[in-house]
Design a protein around this nucleic acid. Structure first.
Lengths: 139, 139
DNA sequence: CATCAATAGTTGACAATATCAACTATATGC
DNA sequence: GCATATAGTTGATATTGTCAACTATTGATG
């Protein structure tokens, strides 16, 4: 059965499996900072010194504008994010991180971007090969 | 900046990026079948002809038993899943797929396990290398 | 056998997330 | 100036998830 499975199928399933093995604890990690996974995602998308309009955030999150209102309400109430009116268009609210938000973002991202130990245990050749392949996949 | 990033870090970030590129549409895919991502996950975990107790499902989902009650209630109300009392322990409810659940599961998994086109565009060597590396990562 | 502690699943309260519809203020096009 | 489109908000609703409390059942112990 497994011998007849195509390589792309096999690779994809292994990749999915690996990813979920590593990601199973994202909610736990997020809750360390009293954040939900979605809130971590939002903090990631709002870059320091790069305000983003609410609508752009909704696009990036691929969700409804009203949902973003709630997400931002809660982060704003925690002093992590600020709404700012846009100078160009009075309908638009721009979102920026507060200094506290910048600090928390940095801490959270440091944790989230930490590679799994298993990646460090690959040989240098394997690591290089993996990076090369992944770059090609993203082209 | 990028030149000083460790290979494991680089690989992890590329991998995460690739994964989310492919997975951004899981909610959309699930909604084609009028399922939520969580419900898809449940259907995946309940294998045909392999009843699983509620508690085992909660473990596999890494969530609270009461949450599983709700998830199964809704799938049961759609005729996709059945609760069955266990012969060994009267506290235990075993979950099995209905014939309709089996069919839907098969359809959904076929879609979910379909590898991205980009994987098929790698060379045979690259695919083999990727599979080999992923297997090592999962050891 | 009786008692007590542990367990499986359910109920209920609550918060967060997400969709959809309707709304108001604002911008754009004619 | 008017009609249409747009940004964000409000509100209703469903789903998911945690936590606490509960009932029925099981297992361990004396």
């Amino acid at each position: 059965m497994k011998s007849t499975k195509s390589k792309p199928c096999e690779a994809w399933q292994l990749l999915v499996k690996f990813f979920f093995t590593q990601r199973a604890d994202l909610p736990t990690l997020a809750s360390e900072f009293e954040l939900s996974p979605a809130q971590c995602h939002v903090l990631h998308l709002i870059e320091p010194d790069r305000p983003i309009p609410m609508g752009r955030l909704a696009e990036a999150l691929a969700c409804d504008a009203s949902n973003v209102t709630g997400l931002i309400d809660r982060l704003e109430s925690r002093g992590l994010v600020r709404r700012r009116p846009s100078a160009d268009d009075r309908r638009v609210k721009s979102l920026e991180l507060t200094p506290a938000g910048v600090r928390l973002r940095s801490t959270v991202l440091e944790r989230i971007t930490k590679p799994p130990d298993s990646l460090g245990r690959l040989s240098a050749d394997e690591q290089r090969a993996l990076v090369k392949i992944l770059k090609r996949l993203l082209d």
